[in-house]
Design a protein around this nucleic acid. Structure first.
Lengths: 148, 148
DNA sequence: TATTAAATGAGAATGATTTTCAATTAGCTC
DNA sequence: GAGCTAATTGAAAATCATTCTCATTTAATA
């Protein structure tokens, strides 16, 4: 049992896992904590490192398994960088719409969803049924812009 | 020399390659043709298969190299599927905004860019400088919806 | 047609991700 | 709290995609 890292997201994760009859293992809660602590989107390796820092040696496969499961459960979101790199961030709602700094890979929220206000009519005219959308803005965050 | 597959996109590709002092090889033109022929976004493997069908044995590395170069040249766009899969489609403008059918992986254009009309002010208030954006809508195309 | 830099092919190397399976653990029940 | 059981983990092997290397070939130009 691990009580050291309780946070809203942790108890949320616990609840979701319980509902599905899945176990709230130390490793899974550590992944939640690492993701929650960071304001950045993290690569699988970074998450692995963070978890190892908390728990000591931890299998990489477990990290992959946890992340995949968390994505299915809607706890985390998987991001795709232009170079194909995989990143994960705590899910902040139903859709992915993040600003991602191409320098520090930091992830920033943006208040409204540009697609939300978009007129789907023209799209649906073509018979296409939109089920989900994925929006990422790329650029430089304030800090990185200054530093440059 | 290969004259069998001439199309607008082929001559465009030739031109871009020429401008950069790059060669319009049989393989590169075949990649253009395969992509142009298909209304779908294609995986690297599918493109490789298409090219092999046209030319016979062709190195996979060449396909990767060509696709990477074409992306740099703005000739093709790289798409990212929710499962992390890589896809390529002929570039239809400056930005990527496609509808992608999750069943057949077909790619459909959508007329306006939802992000274009988006008010960046709130984002830039946070000091973030938007340089590019990536929008993908996921759903079912008309055919797949019928078939289901 | 000769020249030459650019490009290709084949396979080796790399790196990321997934699988396997024996050992461990969380979440029950008593 | 101890015992039970299915779920989970760790470690290593296996797989898969992607990149690299370098000898050979080719496109573009003269």
């Amino acid at each position: 049992m691990m009580k050291d890292f309780e946070c809203t997201q942790e108890s949320y994760a616990r609840e979701v896992l319980r509902e599905k009859g899945l176990k709230s293992t130390t490793q899974r809660l550590a992944v939640v904590h690492v993701l929650h602590t960071s304001r950045k989107s993290l690569s699988v390796g970074e998450i692995h490192d963070g978890v190892k820092e908390m728990l000591g040696a931890t299998g990489l496969a477990t990290i992959y398994r946890t992340l995949e499961m968390f994505e299915d459960l809607g706890i985390v979101k998987r991001l795709h960088f232009p170079d194909g790199g995989r990143g994960y961030a705590f899910s902040q709602g139903e859709h992915v719409h993040h600003m991602v700094c191409v320098d520090c890979r930091g992830v920033f929220d943006f208040p409204e969803c540009p697609v939300e206000s978009f007129d789907y009519a023209s799209v649906e005219k073509q018979g296409f049924r939109v089920k989900d959308h994925f929006v990422q803005l790329f650029g430089q965050c304030g800090k990185c812009a200054e530093a440059a």
